Computed example of a mutant assay.
Amino acid sequence: MFDRRSFLRGAGGAALAAPILGSAACGASTGGAKLTAGDKAASAGALPVSFTNESGYPDSAVRLYIVGTDTATGKQGRVKADGTFAPVRLSDNTDGGYTDYAIPLSEAGGLTLPFMSGRIYLALEDKLRFKVVEDGNGNPALQYPAGWVKSDPSFGVLHDTVEFTHDDSGMYCNTSMVDQFSVPLAIALSGEQEQSTGRLKPGGRDMVFDAMLNDPDYSPLVVGDRRRVIAPGHGIDSGRFAADYFDPYIEQVWSRYSGTDLKVTTNAGTFTGRVNGSGQLAFDGGVAPIAKPSTRDVFFCDGALVAPNDGITGPVAAILGAAFNRATLLNTADHPVAEASAFYNNDIHNKYAAVFHEATEDGRAYGFAFDDVSGFASYIQDHAPASFEVSLTPF
């Protein structure tokens, strides 16, 4: 299984890494084309993608961008309106120094998705500024928009994404609020079964912004007149959010587990840990010691809570990251916690993530990088996908 979190963390920094997961689009009610056997032979892996525009914005205001990495070659590229993958080139920077990879919604009928891993960006009213640059090896690489960075040329553009990986084993996709939230999106996948996720309740977008604006700690994360809300980790980096927000809770957790065993159960077994004399949370069973995290580490699920893809330390760190964000570590010493009613009950918790779970119809969202712990992420997969649908839902 691919590692979604490595991309989510990477996207939180610079916008140069090619996504491992990402897909979104939204727009018009243009139906995805049905492929014949001959079509599939000509375009290996082509998955019909359709788009529904329920936003209230006209179709003429919607642009789609499908960008990422070819799963066979590892090359970064973009999908053209005919469904083919084109590697990025420095010469693509033709629009004032930026690329023009937009697919107008009116031209998205019959669009297909090749085997690749990446994102579909949805932009309203204006273009997104993608730029092709050279990576450290001198190869063309795509610089992505960073909606949480005020100096980014796409900062003023209303946009959002869904993430995906589509390869010969299936289609894996999710909506994401890990970095920021602007546009309410939903996804649906047909194949072995019918699945959907991401749809907000009626008035859900206002619910999110109301919750942020009514909390003095979180209100600085709102940009413009409800144009977007930035994730708290990025808020710390930009001076919008307190870098010590989680510190009192972290201290309480470290104090508790200095004298009490913490048990974390993963697919590899149950690991028992306790804070040692060096101030590290030390587990048995070969789990690497975990240092006391900072507030930034908690929000980004990184730093002290980084989850290596090793099958041992990684899953333990992921469960701890989720427990910190959901504020369940003082309630029980046995993790993960699988009951949603136990989440977000401490005064200090990730309120940004919490409100998305409250605002979605199925209670699932990707509000932080380890939100998939215990199955609460807005994520779906299918090993025999027949069609993929993305909806720009009502504001």
Rank of each mutant, 00 (worst) to 15 (best):
F324H: 13
V316P: 12
A353C: 11
V298W: 14
S278M: 05
I120F: 10
F130V: 08
R274K: 14
S169A: 13
L124F: 14
R199W: 05
D362R: 04
T112D: 13
D59C: 01
D371N: 14
E107G: 04
L111W: 12
I230H: 01
L320Q: 10
R63E: 07
P220Y: 07
D225S: 14
G38V: 11
A211I: 02
P232K: 05
T197N: 00
S341E: 11
A359W: 03
D82G: 02
A307Y: 00
A317G: 06
Y366M: 12
F164D: 04
A340R: 15
A28N: 13
A242T: 06
L329V: 13
A86K: 12
L262N: 00
N53P: 02
A86V: 13
D100S: 15
R129E: 01
I103F: 07
G83P: 09
P289A: 03
D215V: 07
T175P: 03
S50N: 05
K351T: 04
Y144A: 09
S6W: 07
S91K: 15
A14Q: 08
C26E: 12
M116D: 05
D225I: 04
G56S: 03
I290G: 01
I348N: 00
W148N: 11
M171Q: 08
D247I: 03
F155D: 01
T332L: 11
N174V: 06
A318F: 02
S50E: 14
T260W: 03
V337L: 08
L124I: 15
